[in-house]
Write a protein that binds this DNA or RNA. Structure first.
Lengths: 230, 230, 230, 230
DNA sequence: TATGAATGAGGCTTCATTCAT
DNA sequence: CATGAATGAAGCCTCATTCAT
């Protein structure tokens, strides 16, 4: 069965498993509230100041608790960022779209939907994605986390490309894995430039979806199938 | 006249102009030697430890001079990195290739040559490029520097794409600027993955050149012209 | 009447009186159980980690109760150590030996029995004794506690020495109090070296008893009396 | 040739070797001055507050330098205490006495001189010795340091005792090593009680010398030789 | 009585930059 | 020019004790 082509991070497993946690998970409702307030506050602060420039005291001040409480739930700044990123997955994990489209839908439409889903999610979490990029370049833990994410994207897309090739729809001379690597990178950079940096604010999600989809389609030599075949 | 398509950083202007310098340029031979030793040492240290993890004292120790001497030539850590990056331009600025090819050469061949030039230069300076990425995400000065570099690439490539469209060789429905943005990003990410991170050591320059060129050609819908048609 | 010579801490009064306690003594059976578990756990933790390195939370975890419960029974970390030390007195208070020996027994045999009793008790409680030494050097409360213990030993032994001098059995030129101070210190240090530190594991209780007794006897110029002369 | 009996720490090697140092040794006169001021200040502070209660900032305030300067010369509180203790060795290393006495002098006179030397040195450095005891019970580094010191005393004295036994002057039934261990401990505890703690301020050096020497002599069964034999 | 979350003062440490020699 | 010591602000983290539930 054909795999849809997509860069949506949605299907990725949670970035952090239970075992990774340093602090304890709260058992009481009060604890759950405090932990939640800390994660929410951390997101605010990280988005405002970045990871390096953020201070633990800013986070606890924002969460209106003491510095000590921070260490009840997290053992380091690294760990709370992990939790923030993990929580963001719930948002990035955007169900739908692909469900809506039939498996035998026009591949270009599938790609377009995936791109839209990806860029929209990126836009919602742009500041956090910048932070993620930052720390991935600084901290091996987050570098590995990001690496795993990219890896799973790549593999899924490589399979999808191979599938399209098998079905005679995509350029058979392309190496699926390298192509996935390159095209994923292209899309990631587009999102990064448009939303992560403050440079390209004149690009809309529609612009990006159009450009990305057109280039994917061209690159794979996909033909837009006659719309009403089925 | 047609501009060659390329992502080679070579043609970029020097990143720093003389006026930017905090320290004075040395006048004596001894001064020139010390300054050179500092820049060389800084490159070693930055490549080994990254920017954030590097210590000025490590640099002066490596250069076998005192910390005080550092400030004779540079006014900050930021500035010596600028100098290191600037010096690296001499290497990234790889003369040749395009000179060798005639202006009316097969566009795919031009693209291929540019890619080869780019990947080779990236490979030679990979560690430094990682540092550049790092600081661009941390420091506005370097972010701007990197932004300018990318901007000039983009503009040149956008012009090249537009030129190819004008000549009826490339897909006319593509927006040249956005296409340049996307495809440059693709190539940059390929280099980054292959050489910057330690992840994809099984990819050679040839692999990358092939993949990047094929995808560029497909994306632009270029036809490999019969070599001696004209 | 002659006092037996001894360094056994057994006869010391309880280190803490009921009035000193911060927490209340438990009235319910459940309370007695919890308090007992805390004291037992504290001993385990103090012996494992020492006083300074121990955490109240380790103690409550070991006792399988909450941190809050700790303060139901004790008002501070200092107090639970006091309780642990006090409980250890029950063990150090080793009945017998001296009861077994007649009051007019050979003084050297009495000394030997005392030494054996002391070293055996020390060995059983060596880790705790180390903790006691530690805190005595850090905390005035425990310093005073230890001082009182030593003082009572010294006085008893000084009286014993004086008694032996009066009976013409010991060197009459020795100052009883200073001699007791010195010889008690000697025995204490022997035990400390042999069991408290990890240095002299090749010394057995028998070795120590022999050495300590011989040196006491020599130092006091005691003659080993013919057993059934009187 | 006969070894003199003694507990004088004088002949011990320096407690710290050059390799142990974390900070650099200063090369300039100014640096030597600052480092010296820090060591002197540290001694003042350690003697006043003990090791645990002392703050690095108290030391730098006393030395009238910045906190940063501390780390120019030492990498931790542990290290500066090591330096202080090492410096104190120069004082404990009290030449003389034994040189003055002929090798064939009355052993009791030799012991007495050694004891006097020891107690006098201890008195001069009593507060520091308390600190040393403290940290030896808390910190493995200092425990080892103290252990080595004691070890070398013990070995020297064990050899001396064996020598006296060989010469027919001391009780041949004593085990030299255990005897040295016990008697050294006795003298150490005497000094500790008399000067280290605030308990026994009524004991003078003369009292201690007399008591310690008499007990050593008795314990070894030495006879005070006819004074004018030689 | 039991629970376990909340508190918060303050010590240690780093290192780019300055400055006296 | 060169040297290398001096500076000092600022942030992370600990853990005995308190308190709301």
């Amino acid at each position: 069965m054909s795999q849809p082509v997509g860069v949506d991070p949605a299907q990725d497993p949670p970035l952090v498993t239970e075992q990774d946690r340093g602090g304890d998970l709260p058992t009481t409702a009060r604890g759950v509230r405090t932990r939640g307030a800390l994660v929410a506050a951390a997101r605010v602060i990280f988005e405002r100041d970045g990871y390096l420039e953020s201070r633990l005291t800013d986070i606890t001040a924002e969460a209106q608790c003491s510095t000590g409480s921070f260490y009840t739930y997290f053992s380091s700044k690294e760990e709370i960022l992990t939790a923030v990123l993990e929580a963001a997955q719930d948002d990035m994990l955007h169900p739908g779209i692909k469900r809506v489209l039939p498996d035998d839908a026009d591949p270009i439409a599938v790609i377009e939907a995936s791109h839209r889903s990806y860029f929209e999610a990126y836009l919602r979490n742009a500041r956090l994605m910048v932070v993620f990029e930052q720390v991935a370049l600084i901290n091996p833990h987050f570098r590995a986390m990001k690496g795993r994410r990219g890896e799973s994207f790549r593999e899924r897309n490589a399979r999808s490309i191979a599938d399209l090739q098998d079905r005679g729809l995509a350029d058979p001379t392309l190496d699926p894995y390298r192509t996935a690597l390159a095209l994923n990178g292209m899309v990631g950079r587009l999102a990064w430039h448009a939303f992560g940096l403050e440079l390209e604010r004149n690009l809309t999600v529609d612009d990006l979806v159009e450009t990305a989809t057109q280039l994917w389609a061209n690159a794979l030599k996909l033909e837009r199938s006659a719309p009403a075949q089925s």
